[in-house]
Write a protein that binds this DNA or RNA. Sequence first.
DNA 1: TTCAGCCCGATTGTATACAAAATGGATTGG
DNA 2: CCAATCCATTTTGTATACAATCGGGCTGAA
Lengths: 242, 242
Amino acid sequence: MQRFTTFETAAPTARAGAIGGSARAEAIYRSIFDAVMDQRLPPGAKLVEEQLGAIFEASRTLVRSALQALAQDHIVTIERHRGAFVCAPTVADAEDIFFSRKVVEAALAREAARRTDAARIADLRGLLADEREALRRGERRKAIRLSGDFHIAVAAICGEGALTQFLRSLVSRSSLVIALYGRSAASACGHDEHAAFLDALEAGDGERAARLMTEHLDHIFRDLALAERSEAPVDIRLVLRA
Amino acid sequence: MQRFTTFETAAPTARAGAIGGSARAEAIYRSIFDAVMDQRLPPGAKLVEEQLGAIFEASRTLVRSALQALAQDHIVTIERHRGAFVCAPTVADAEDIFFSRKVVEAALAREAARRTDAARIADLRGLLADEREALRRGERRKAIRLSGDFHIAVAAICGEGALTQFLRSLVSRSSLVIALYGRSAASACGHDEHAAFLDALEAGDGERAARLMTEHLDHIFRDLALAERSEAPVDIRLVLRA
DNA sequence: TTCAGCCCGATTGTATACAAAATGGATTGG
DNA sequence: CCAATCCATTTTGTATACAATCGGGCTGAA
């Protein structure tokens, strides 16, 4: 059966409305967003406006527009007179993000169980297969991305509402958390819990689906090596001087 | 007892980080936001950049920055080459917003019941009294705002996490919904359901609090006159030409 | 050597100038 | 009288210029 949806790792604002009314700024947003999700831009990386402008052949105006949007989505932070940096979520942020995800995804799972159909399930099984394949090949980043896509695809069963949008943002931030605190092999939803969840969804058992999702998210969170990093992104200079 | 928090109607992004790294842009955001919440700027109103610039004595650069942020928060929509307009949520939007609120606020209520203390409860009772007073005096707008503040204050018991931020955004959008579809007297949480909810919270009964909150939001939603407006904001010219 | 203070380069913040697009009205033809 | 078209005006989109600020390195003295 042909899949009739493709779930790229979607930026939170991708559909929310043009960034500054500009398609070009949105493309820049998109490029930076993807780079962060792929960990080509690691947490803490500085994003210099003029450099970005040169890369994308655009003026700082558009770059700033994109950076602002990324800041609102908690992908980068903008510090006044200092510039934009890829966000480095603290442990507290990570807790908050996963707590929020549990609330939102449990509710969406319940709802999705009521609404789903065979085609949707097939789509999700396809994503699952892709994810497994990526894991088997050791393509960790791709697996993480596909894992996120799975969660978003479940949400999208309920339509593109506010909760789904919000979840997109939380999933993006989760990628940053995993980039910072994720252990090499685990943390990529590798427990085949997605499969069990999908079974519950297919059976239309919303309660079970919600419970499995909650547990799944707990597992991901617990697999993080949260102690291994200091809470705040460290600026060596500040630390040594203070 | 002195209240130690003041809950102005907070903009979703107010704390999330400087808008474009600029305090001035944030002030503009704030002014427009407040005007929309107060219904001084009605849904559909056009926001011309240069006009705003003149009003705030700022260049279009800063105005655009603020408008972009407002767009990301669904307070205004930006249409390419046409400009920014105060959002006019459709009936579908309204459903989505209140569904999301039920999910988020039920969870936050449960959590708040575990964390709350006497001081917080006193704060909330204060807000409740203000709201009642405003209603008694017939100050409808103020009552609506205070009602929103109440909901946010409950969320804030759980801290300023992602869910609370998200709720801020939903409450803002609810104000727009009420502006469009609210009936004169009702819709302002006037049922004293806040008081009952607060009792549950004080008793530490999270389940009851969550249930009361859900029902309360259902009531607000049902009190809207959702049929009385066309779904999409109408542009007369387009309608007549097409 | 080490620290304080100062200066300069790099980078961000803001305003403005110019280009592109849409809107609304006038004009022309039916 | 109406409709369609064209043009001027308004408004947005983008680039660029200039100002403000920050950080790093240099200098100089203790």
